[in-house]
Amino acid sequence: MAGLTQEAGEAASQGRPPAIELRNVSQQFRLESGKKVQALDNVSLKVEPGEFLCVLGPSGHGKSTMLNIVAGFLQPNSGEVLAGGKPVTGPGADRGVVFQRDTVFMWKSVADNVAFGMKARGVPKAEREEKVERYLRHIGLEQYGEEWPKQLSGGMRRRVAIATVFANEPDVLLMDEPFVGLDYARRSALHKVLMDLWAESQRSVLFVTHDIDEALALADRIVVVVKGQVVLEERLSMPRPRGVAEITGDEAVEIRGRLLEQLDPEASGVV
C-alpha cells in the first residue's frame, strides 16, 4: 500500500483547487403530503486532491443527496458546487460514480463494461484494451472479461463497477454506499481492491457510508452529516493498510467514541 495519507494528499494539492468544494449548499424536497424536508442545510465542505473523504451519517440525513448534487444529478436549491474549481452543471466524466445499486450493464460483457466510459469518450481502441486488461487484473477478474455479468456473483459485479469507474480515470470518485449488503469477508476484500486502486491512481474519493468501521478502514478524513448538516469532522492518521488491529486500536476507539456521540439518537436527536 502506498500509504497515501492526508498529509500526502495535502502535499499533492498544493497550488491546485480542491477536487470538490461545496459552498453553502442547501437542498429541500417537497413530499407528496406537501411537507418539506431539509435534506441539506447550508453545507460547506472541501475534498482535497488525492484525499479519501468518508461521509458518515444515519440513513435519510442527506448523505446521498450531497453525493447526487456533487455528481450533477441534482441541482441544489442554493449554494454552489465546484469540481476542480469549475462549477458543476451536470454529470460528467470528471466525477465517476459507483452506486449502491447494481448498475453493471447486463447486456455488455465484463470487458465491455469496463471499456464503456472510455469508448464513449473516444479513447483509442488499443489504449482501451490495455486499460481493460490492466484493471481486470487489478480486481482479479482477468479470466472473466468475455463473460456476461449475470455469470458473476454480487461482489464480483461491484468490483466490475469499481474497475469501470477507475478505468475511466475521473478526477474524483463518488461512491454511494457501494458495499452495502455484502458480508464482512467480501466487504474487506473489496476494501482492499479499492485501496489498491486508489493508492495507485491517487484520485480523490468522496465515499458515503453509514458504517463506522468502513469509514475507519478507508478514510483520510471523516465528516458526519446529521439532519443535513456537517456536525463533526475527524482526521485519521492511522497507518494503512488498516486491518482489525488498526480499526480497534486506541486512535480508532477514540474516534469511534466521538462519532457515536454524534450518531447516538438520544444525544443528537437523530431519528
Binding site: A71, F73, F105, N168, L174
Partner: peptide, 22 residues
C-alpha cells in the same frame, strides 16, 4: 431505472449515447 442513465452520463456518455447504448 433512471440510475442506468445517470451511471452512463457519469462515465462520459452523451445523452444520445446513453439512450441508444444503455
Amino acid at each position: 431505472p433512471p440510475y442506468y442513465e445517470q451511471y452512463a452520463r457519469s462515465l462520459g456518455a452523451s445523452g444520445l449515447q446513453s439512450y441508444l447504448r444503455v
